[in-house]
């Protein structure tokens, strides 16, 4: 029987969109049965129209092209600039874009579950999110996670 891999995706930034999609698509390619439960900011990864951004604020580990005081990093336009630079780097290094990687993940047969509670909390509409995904709560996730060989929080 196929191994099972359960992931909770909680983050909604461009950088943190990578781990759930990379690991789940690869696991599916290796024959795993994979489910991702998207909750809180992770719901952003399910939007039909992806608009993910990256910021260095609160993230001192992010490599910067030049040293920059934190207050300056908070200036208007900085987030858009950092996002554009990151996307450029992603392309230059042959790393998949998130829309491409998400499509590959779906194609590989990974099952997506959106947290209905967070959908309500943030006033998201089902029509804003991908078609064909499931909606559920903690019990839904735990039913699969309880039988899984690997469970990860991201």
């Amino acid at each position: 029987m196929a191994k099972k891999f359960a992931i909770i995706a909680t983050k909604g930034s461009l950088d943190w969109a990578y781990p759930p999609f990379i690991l789940s698509s690869t696991a599916a390619a290796l024959g795993y049965d994979v489910q991702i439960f998207f909750t809180f900011y992770g719901l952003n990864l399910l939007k039909k129209k992806l608009d993910l951004k990256v910021t260095s604020l609160g993230n001192p580990g992010m490599p910067m092209p030049m040293p920059m005081p934190v207050l300056m990093q908070a200036m208007p336009g900085m987030q858009a600039m950092m996002t554009a630079m990151m996307k450029q780097k992603i392309k230059a290094k042959g790393v998949a874009s998130i829309p491409e990687l998400r499509d590959l993940t779906i194609e590989a047969g990974v099952k997506f579950i959106a947290c209905q509670m967070t959908v309500d909390l943030f006033d998201f509409k089902h029509s804003d999110l991908l078609d064909g995904i499931d909606y559920g709560g903690a019990a839904t996730f735990l039913e699969f996670a309880g039988q899984s060989d690997i469970a990860m929080y991201m």
């Binding site: 990379i22 698509s25 690869t26 390619a29 290094k93 042959g94 790393v95 998949a96 590959l104 590989a108």
Partner: peptide, 13 residues
């Protein structure tokens, strides 16, 4: 060529 993780594996599959 030129592709980074996990694309070579996904394409191979």
């Amino acid at each position: 060529s030129g592709l980074n993780c996990p694309l070579p594996i996904l394409r191979a599959k």
